[in-house]
Structures are given as structure tokens and as C-alpha cells.
Simulated assay, not measured.
Amino acid sequence: MSPKVSDEHKEQRRLQILEAAERVFARKGYEPATMKDIVEEAAMSRGWIYLYYQTKEEIFVAMMEKLDQENAVRIRQLGDQTGSVWKLLELWMEEGKRELASLSETVIPAFYEFFLTGWRNERRQELLRLRYRRSIRELTALLQSGVDKGEFRPTLETGQIARIAASQIDGIHMHVLAVGAEESAAAVQIDALLAYLGTLLGVSRPASSSSH
């Protein structure tokens, strides 16, 4: 077998582990999930999995990286389709509303569990800081591209607007997980957030599509 094929095989195995882990963490959460659960879900030997990852935490962090990369690709694709940063934000928020009903069936609860229950764990907190900084940097760059295109005339620095958006989205998600989408009026909150972002960004008609 050539080195290229071998590398492809290794990558397929790695993805198989991470996809199995995603199903396990979505089903059980972070703390209750075990390496045994992931081994069984992946239908691989424990030895194979330990060639790639030594702990459940390593697998979880790698899984989050994979999902972040996939999300970044999806955002770029939406941007290419629309040609407009504001339209991209509208579509992103609409997608978020559609996902509210199934939020508890995703890995998002495990994500909050991992970081919030591990607030005394310095490694987890450093991972959270690094992930937060990267997400804010990426969102800031997206908003700044809208400024550069002449779509936005923001009333705040774009980095601050990115932080506001991130905080609001996290808050909405946590309330949905705690009391449900209907009780927390999550869809209304997302519409209100989009309108608020439109005001901060200086968009003339900030909620044109999501208000219908």
C-alpha cells in the first residue's frame, strides 16, 4: 500500500471515530459518555482508537475542531451564494431558528457541559479562551468585510459587535436548553438580535427577510 493510500485510510479511521463520538456525545452528553461508548459506536477495537486518541477529552476537543471547520466551510459557501454579508447573517439566523427544536439532540449541550462543569479545570478554560478568541476573530473579519464592501456603517467597532452577537447567541442557546424554545421565546429573540445587529452595523433595513 502506498503512503498516500495509508494516509487516506488513517484519515478515514479518524473521521469514523469523531463521527461516532458526535453521536455518543449528542445522545449522552459529555460527562456520562465513556470511551467504551465511543469504541462501541465506532465499531472499532479499543486498540485502534487509542492509536489516535488517548482520552475522551482528546476526542471531544478534536470533534469540536472538526465541527468548527465544517461550520466555517458552510458560512463561506453561504457567503459565496449570496454575495452579501448582511444576507449571509440573515440566512445564518434563519438557520439557527430552524435548529432550535432539535438543539437538545445535538452536541451543543455537551459543549456547554464540557466547559461549564470544567470551570475549575485550567486546560478546559484555556481551550475555551482560545476557541472564543478564534470565533470572535472570524466573526469580526466577516463583519469587517461587510464594512469594506460598503454594506455596513457600524456605530461600534466590529470586534465589539461580534462579541455582542456571540454572547446573545450563547444566552439564547442556554435558555433553550434550560426551559425550551417556546418558553424562552427563542425565535423572537433571534429576530430581535438580528434587528439589533442591523442597527449596530448601520444597515438601512436590518430585519427585512426574517420578519416575514
Results as ranks from 00 to 15, higher is better:
1 M>K: 10
1 M>W: 09
3 P>V: 14
3 P>L: 15
3 P>A: 15
6 S>Y: 11
9 H>D: 10
16 Q>W: 03
19 E>C: 09
23 R>Y: 02
24 V>R: 01
27 R>K: 15
27 R>E: 00
29 G>H: 01
30 Y>L: 03
31 E>C: 07
35 M>W: 00
38 I>V: 15
39 V>K: 00
40 E>I: 02
40 E>M: 05
40 E>G: 02
45 S>I: 03
46 R>V: 12
47 G>P: 14
48 W>T: 05
48 W>A: 05
48 W>M: 03
52 Y>R: 11
53 Y>M: 04
55 T>Y: 03
57 E>P: 07
57 E>Y: 01
57 E>H: 03
58 E>L: 01
59 I>Q: 02
59 I>W: 01
62 A>D: 05
63 M>P: 04
65 E>A: 04
66 K>R: 13
68 D>F: 07
69 Q>S: 14
69 Q>N: 13
70 E>K: 02
71 N>Q: 15
72 A>D: 08
72 A>F: 05
76 R>G: 08
80 D>H: 00
80 D>C: 02
81 Q>V: 08
81 Q>S: 10
83 G>C: 10
85 V>F: 00
93 M>D: 02
94 E>R: 04
99 E>I: 03
101 A>F: 00
102 S>Q: 09
103 L>R: 06
103 L>T: 08
103 L>P: 01
107 V>C: 02
109 P>C: 08
109 P>Q: 07
110 A>K: 00
112 Y>G: 07
113 E>H: 05
113 E>M: 06
116 L>I: 10
117 T>C: 14
117 T>M: 13
118 G>N: 12
121 N>W: 03
126 E>S: 14
126 E>D: 14
129 R>M: 10
129 R>P: 01
130 L>I: 15
131 R>V: 09
135 S>V: 13
137 R>T: 09
140 T>N: 07
142 L>M: 14
145 S>P: 03
149 K>W: 13
149 K>Y: 12
150 G>K: 07
150 G>V: 06
153 R>L: 09
155 T>D: 10
159 G>P: 08
159 G>Q: 11
160 Q>K: 14
161 I>V: 15
163 R>L: 10
163 R>F: 04
164 I>D: 02
164 I>Q: 03
166 A>V: 06
168 Q>D: 06
168 Q>L: 13
169 I>D: 05
170 D>A: 14
174 M>H: 03
175 H>C: 07
177 L>E: 06
183 E>M: 10
189 Q>V: 06
190 I>V: 14
190 I>N: 12
190 I>L: 15
191 D>C: 04
193 L>K: 01
193 L>T: 04
194 L>V: 15
194 L>G: 05
196 Y>I: 01
197 L>Q: 07
198 G>M: 07
199 T>C: 09
202 G>I: 06
203 V>C: 06
203 V>T: 07
205 R>Y: 12
207 A>M: 10
208 S>V: 04
210 S>K: 11
210 S>Q: 09
211 S>N: 12
